[in-house]
């Protein structure tokens, strides 16, 4: 570490904390403001007071009058499945690319990058037709597959970097012990890759949890909606409902934040390796 506390003047200290505090306020405030607004009665949604007749009315309205809980459940299913499968696929792919020099590896790396380049917005119609012919419309499976294609390429890249940072000697010791490549991967390497897996899981979860365009294109009917799609009913052209919207936003953000808190201590280590060697 370059600068240690002993060498910092009080002025520098104030400057440092001041800068970080301002940055923190900017980072947190929009979300915090939504939270505060959601606790005001709907008709005072646009007041500047931080608190104004604090009430949970927006939440009770939301939970009572809409299928919010159904949507919530659908989202949990989709996001959890995406996360589990996504982490697994990203890990196997990342490991293969990291450890083996096999024909097709370089093209695969390019393909993973290219999938990030083609604008997904344009893929909606052909994907719709594809899912329609495979009978995957209006099914959580269809969404899971779609989200995997968004999340896995980046995650696999990141995992490759992470595996690169794990010494090859560990693989070799596995081979000496008579483990096949899968055994080595599963028993020796994966446990060491936990921070990387945490980041991958976080990224997959966030991708699946917050996606709107595909969810509202592929799913129809209140019972099948995910949270993001269901929320469309709040931004319907002919209703101005800031109160319930803010409450809904809070309820959507909470699970994501929980997942974030669970993995956040791994974030820096996990991402570093991924990005350094990516």
């Amino acid at each position: 570490m370059p600068n240690t506390r002993r060498s910092r003047s009080p002025l520098a200290s104030i400057g440092l904390h001041g800068t970080l505090l301002i940055a923190t306020v900017v980072a947190v405030f929009p979300a915090l403001w939504v939270l505060l607004t959601s606790l005001k009665p709907a008709k005072f949604a646009t007041t500047t007071d931080f608190f104004h007749d604090t009430t949970l009315a927006n939440y009770t309205h939301l939970l009572g009058d809409t299928k919010f809980l159904t949507w919530f459940g659908n989202s949990v299913i989709v996001a959890a499945t995406t996360t589990v499968i996504g982490v697994f696929l990203a890990a196997t792919t990342g490991y293969a690319v990291s450890r083996f020099r096999f024909p097709g590896m370089r093209p695969l790396m390019w393909v993973l990058l290219i999938t990030q380049m083609f604008p997904m917005a344009i893929l909606i119609v052909p994907l719709y037709n594809l899912f329609s012919s495979m009978g995957l419309l209006n099914q959580p499976v269809g969404l899971v597959i779609t989200y995997l294609t968004i999340a896995v390429p980046f995650c696999a890249w990141m995992m490759k970097g992470f595996f690169d940072a794990i010494p090859v000697e560990i693989d070799e010791s596995g081979r000496v012990d008579g483990l096949n490549p899968f055994g080595t991967f599963w028993r020796l390497i994966l446990p060491l890759a936990r921070p990387g897996l945490a980041v991958t899981g976080f990224y997959s979860f966030i991708t699946a949890w917050g996606e709107v365009a595909y969810a509202s294109a592929f799913m129809v009917g209140e019972d099948n909606m995910t949270l993001a799609g269901g929320l469309q009913t709040f931004v319907n052209q002919y209703t101005a409902q800031w109160g319930p919207m803010t409450a809904a936003s809070v309820l959507i953000a909470v699970p994501a934040v929980i997942v974030f808190v669970l993995v956040q201590r791994h974030l820096v280590t996990g991402m570093t390796a991924g990005a350094t060697k990516g």
Binding site: Y128, S132, G135, V235
Partner: peptide, 22 residues
């Protein structure tokens, strides 16, 4: 009875009607 948000309905119907399912 299925309520489809007005803003989405035109596109959803076109997607569904042209693909032959849904």
């Amino acid at each position: 009875y299925v309520n489809v948000p007005f803003a989405d309905a035109q596109n959803k119907f076109k997607n569904a009607a042209s693909s032959g399912s849904g």
